[in-house]
Structure formats: C-alpha cells, structure tokens
C-alpha cells in the first residue's frame, strides 16, 4: 500500500500549472525547431522565430507563454493500492488538485479563464472548477498529467458520428476538413489529436488523450495508425494554411491518433485541435 499525502499533491499541482505555462517542454521545442527548418514561406519563418523567442522570454521571466493559460485539465491515473492521507485540511484528492490550481494560477499571475455558467458568463475568479478525468488502475501508480488548454484551438474541434461504410477514407477526410475549417483561428502550427471509435463521448476523450502522448510527434504503436498519422500530417501540411494562417508549408506540428473498439453500427471520430503552445506536463508520486 502506497500512501500519498494530499498536501504534497496540492503543492506539486501548484508548481506544475505554473511550469507548464512558462516553459515549453523539450519535445515540443524539438518539433518546432525541426518544422521551422522545413518551412519555406518567409512569413511562416518569421512566425517560427517569434514562437521560439516567445518561449525564451516566457521561461526567463515566468510569463505565460500565451495569455490564454487555459482551462486546467487533469488526467489522474491512480492505483487501487494507493491510500490518500487527507492532511492539511484537504478533504479529497479533487480538493487538493483544485486548491493547487487556485494557488498556482494566483501566484503565477496566470489568467483566470473560467466562467461559472456558459450563458450567464460570470468569471469564477480562480480558474476553477478544474476538469479531471479519473482512471483507476491496479497497483500503486499515482500519476497526474496537466494540460493547459486554450479556448481558441479547442473551439475548432469537432466530433462526427460516421456510418462504418465511411471507412478509413471518411475518417481521414474528416480530420483534414476539420483542420482546413479551423484555418488561421487555432494558432497554427497546430497539434491534431484524433480519437477514432469508442462512442460519442469516448471518442472526444480519446482525441484529448492522444494529445498527452510523449514525445510530441511520436507514433501510435499500431503501424496501421502510425501510417495514418504520417499521411494526415502530410495532407494537413498541404493545405497551405501555414504558421498563423499566413500561408506556408507547415500547418501542423504533429498528428496523434488513438483508437478504441466501438459498436457494430458506429464509427465515431473526434478531432481535438491544439495550438502550437502545447502545454502538457506530468508528475508521479
């Protein structure tokens, strides 16, 4: 039995949300530098230079890489043999994560981007509630992954319920069409997360989870989907949208596809668009 103190979780979360918003991770920087070398458009090259300069300033001055420091999204993988020590007045793991987020967004001068109601739209003032996806697993694993997900790219995402007859071609055309429709809006060069299969809500979750894959741009272990990722990246980069939509050869940095079994009648596909400021970080206890 592993014992995890909630105060430690809170403190780790407080640091995690700040570091992720200030420091572009090495795997993301590697892909950006690689793609910069492949961009031929002069305007596109300038955008890449500015993205890299921005990441240096954000890291040095502890400034948000982007002013949209995102909804705070967490994936919690927790073993069944983990016991939580509810210390420091923290009543639950959810409370520890929420409190860490509140503290981190406040102390890090990060933007509070959550409204308490979708129609009445009053800012909650502390970037909560947080969004937590729980995964209970055997053993003693305790891993939390944070994604700072901005609104501009999220808004360009889509889910479609295909008939199985649409096949592989239908899936691929939908992904390319979604990237094309997004155009200059989601801050290209984008990262494209695709979830194929599952059902209506699970496909969207798969698409988001595909964005967590490390390192950025690595492939699905199934060669069928790895080939699909390569093909989709090429097709999206042939759209010509380019960095910031100003025209160019690099519209996407990476395409990640995840799949799951589904109903005999269904073929759900979700595309979750992510901006170039791909802020994903984890810790394990």
């Amino acid at each position: 039995m592993k014992i995890i103190r909630l105060s430690e979780v809170r403190d780790k979360i407080k640091d995690l949300v700040q570091t992720a918003n200030f420091e572009l991770q090495d795997d993301v920087l590697d892909v950006i530098k690689d793609m910069e070398s492949k961009e031929v458009s002069p305007a596109g090259k300038v955008v890449f230079e500015q993205i890299l300069e921005n990441s240096r300033i954000a890291r040095e001055e502890k400034l948000g890489l982007c002013q949209d420091t995102g909804l705070a999204i967490f994936f919690v993988e927790m073993g069944e043999d983990v016991e939580l020590d509810k210390d420091d007045g923290l009543g639950s793991l959810k409370e520890a994560i929420s409190e860490g987020t509140r503290l981190g967004y406040k102390e890090g001068y990060l933007r509070k981007s959550v409204v308490e109601d979708p129609i009445r739209r009053k800012n909650t003032g502390d970037n909560t509630p947080v969004f937590i996806h729980w995964e209970l697993e055997p053993g003693e694993i305790f891993k939390i992954t944070f994604v700072a997900k901005g609104g501009g790219a999220e808004n360009m995402s889509a889910v479609r319920m295909f008939a199985p007859a649409a096949g592989q071609e239908g899936v691929e055309d939908f992904v390319v069409e979604t990237a094309d429709k997004g155009g200059s809006n989601p801050c290209p060069p984008i990262v494209v997360g695709v979830g194929v299969g599952g059902n209506f809500e699970y496909s969207a979750l798969l698409a988001k989870k595909s964005l967590l894959r490390k390192p950025l741009g690595s492939h699905n272990p199934d060669p069928f989907y790895a080939d699909m990722e390569t093909r989709l990246l090429e097709r999206i980069n042939n759209l010509g949208i380019g960095p910031q939509g100003m025209g160019g050869r690099i519209t996407a940095l990476a395409v990640h596809v995840e799949s799951f079994p589904c109903h005999i009648a269904s073929m759900p596909v979700a595309v979750n668009i992510q901006c170039h400021s791909h802020r994903v970080m984890s810790f394990e206890l």
Binding site: A58, K62, L63, G64, L65, C66, Q67, D68, T69, Y109, L110, R111, S113, G151, G152, N155, N185, P186
Partner: peptide, 22 residues
C-alpha cells in the same frame, strides 16, 4: 482583441497576445 494575464509587480501587463477575432 486581448485578455492579458495579470501583471507581475512592477510590470505594466502580463502575457498579452491576440485572441481569435471571429
């Protein structure tokens, strides 16, 4: 079109890039 992050002490503004215009 911008909603900046809060300014750190001594700075006029925080991170302040553009938001999506449509």
């Amino acid at each position: 079109y911008v909603g900046p992050t809060p300014a750190r002490p001594g700075k006029p503004i925080g991170s302040a890039g553009p938001t999506t215009s449509y």
